[in-house]
Structures are given as structure tokens and as C-alpha cells.
């Protein structure tokens, strides 16, 4: 299962990078979403997978050998929340940019960068 997920992480990264290199800002944002999900999966995988075991137990559970590691799960939750905020912010930014310039083309972003 880890191998499958690791492959998925790789595929997501590849797809994300491909989308990042497109000219449209929306595709660029989709690329960011892919990559952020790939990263979250990677962090989640970092403790390995334990099948069918909870991360939290009550006081009566004695068998601690097969517990899932709760730390990456907590990390991933935080990372997802942050990722959500980032994506929404960049969407809002894109929306505003489109309102002002009427273009979705990343190549149009050169206007402040021209050499005098």
C-alpha cells in the first residue's frame, strides 16, 4: 500500500509541475493544488501505514504496539488547512487580477519587469 501511495505522490507531483508550467493562471493554480496534495500525502506516509488501527485510544487499551502514529495525521490536518487558505487566497488574487486586466495569461505578467 505504501508503494502504491508513493507512486501516487510521484504522479501528483509530476502532474502538478506540468500544470505549473502552463500559461494559464487557472491551470497554474490547479498545479499548486496537485502539488500541495502530493506533499500532504507524502507527510502522511512518513510514519508508514498501519492498517485498521486508531491513532487515539482510551485508557483501557493496553496494546500499544499496533497504534498508528498520530503526529503525521495532525501535521497533515494543519497542512491541509493552510493549503486551503493558500489556494483560496491565490484564487481571490487571480479573480481580482482578471477583473482588472481581463487576461488569464501568465505571459502578460511581464509589464512591471521590463528593463528601462
Amino acid at each position: 500500500m505504501e508503494i502504491l501511495l508513493a507512486v501516487i505522490v510521484g504522479v501528483l507531483y509530476a502532474a502538478g509541475v506540468y500544470m505549473l508550467l502552463r500559461r494559464s493562471i487557472v491551470k497554474f493554480i490547479i498545479g499548486i493544488i496537485f502539488m500541495s496534495n502530493a506533499t500532504n500525502l507524502l507527510v502522511f506516509l512518513s510514519a508508514g501505514l498501519v492498517q485498521g488501527s486508531p491513532a487515539f485510544v482510551n485508557d483501557t487499551t493496553v496494546d500499544t504496539a499496533h497504534l498508528a502514529d498520530p503526529t503525521p495525521q495532525a501535521l497533515v490536518l494543519t497542512a491541509i488547512v493552510i493549503g486551503l487558505g493558500m489556494v483560496v487566497f491565490i484564487l481571490a488574487l487571480k479573480y481580482k487580477y482578471f477583473e482588472i486586466t481581463g487576461t488569464d495569461d501568465l505571459d502578460q505578467l511581464k509589464q512591471t519587469d521590463t528593463h528601462p
Partner: peptide
């Protein structure tokens, strides 16, 4: 907005790489 998009794009990439490195470190 133009500068903002550039700033944001590369810094988000940086954050993701940070998180990926963190995952590997924890692993």
C-alpha cells in the same frame, strides 16, 4: 497584483518543498 502573483507562486512552492522535507525528516 502582478508582483503579488509572482511572489506568491514561488513562495508557495517554497512552502511545499519545506513541508515535503519535513515529511522525509519525520520519516
Amino acid at each position: 497584483l502582478e508582483g503579488g502573483i509572482k511572489y506568491l507562486a514561488l513562495n508557495i512552492m517554497g512552502s511545499m518543498l519545506f513541508l515535503a522535507g519535513l515529511g522525509l525528516l519525520y520519516g
